[in-house]
């Protein structure tokens, strides 16, 4: 699975102003609603479901990266977006580090395989230090998209 298969280009955000978990997740879900990838009326319930999932255990996976996510019945195809926070977000990650890069995923309830493949793709690409660093340094959504495209074209992963 490639980034371009599930990341919504129009919903990518950089220079994230929000600096706590709830506000960041709201901002990212809002960007998906603005891009018409989730319905406005489902916005609140998606945000709450993602926060409920975080209560079970942080989705901070290390390296300053988090993958907040949920399933939602209103979704028929896995959709995601990326946000970059320069100052970092306290995400209660297992390694104690602040999160600077977030991949938010919303998937249909009956497709665990797609979600797993998206996580596999994200984690494999982020193991490349250069890719991970460049993403975190991105100042414009367009820069993020370009990096994701380069990763899709195997310009980073070994």
């Amino acid at each position: 699975m490639k980034f371009s298969d599930f990341i919504c280009r129009e919903a990518i955000r950089t220079n994230l102003e929000a600096d706590e978990k709830r506000a960041v997740i709201q901002a990212m879900a809002k960007s998906l609603a603005e891009a018409k990838k989730i319905n406005e009326k489902d916005f609140e319930s998606i945000v709450e479901a993602i926060l409920k999932r975080e209560e079970l255990g942080s989705t901070g996976i290390g390296r300053g990266v988090a993958v907040p996510h949920t399933k939602h019945p209103s979704i028929d195809k896995l959709i995601g977006t990326v946000a970059v926070s320069e100052s970092g977000v306290n995400f209660d990650s297992l390694d104690g580090e602040k999160v600077h890069l977030l991949f938010l995923l919303v998937s249909p309830p009956d497709r665990p395989g797609d979600h797993l493949r998206a996580l596999e793709n994200i984690s494999r690409q982020l193991r490349d230090d250069t890719f991970c660093r460049f993403l975190k340094q991105s100042k414009k959504p367009e820069d993020v998209w370009q990096l994701l495209e380069e990763a899709d074209n195997n310009q980073f992963s070994s």
């Binding site: 996976i61 290390g62 390296r63 990266v65 297992l94 665990p112 395989g113 797993l116 493949r117 996580l119 596999e120 994200i122 984690s123 494999r124 982020l126 193991r127």
Partner: peptide, 13 residues
Amino acid sequence: TSIIDLLTLGAAQ
């Protein structure tokens, strides 16, 4: 001991 590393396995049921 790395969550990211484990996720790269993409290990389904």
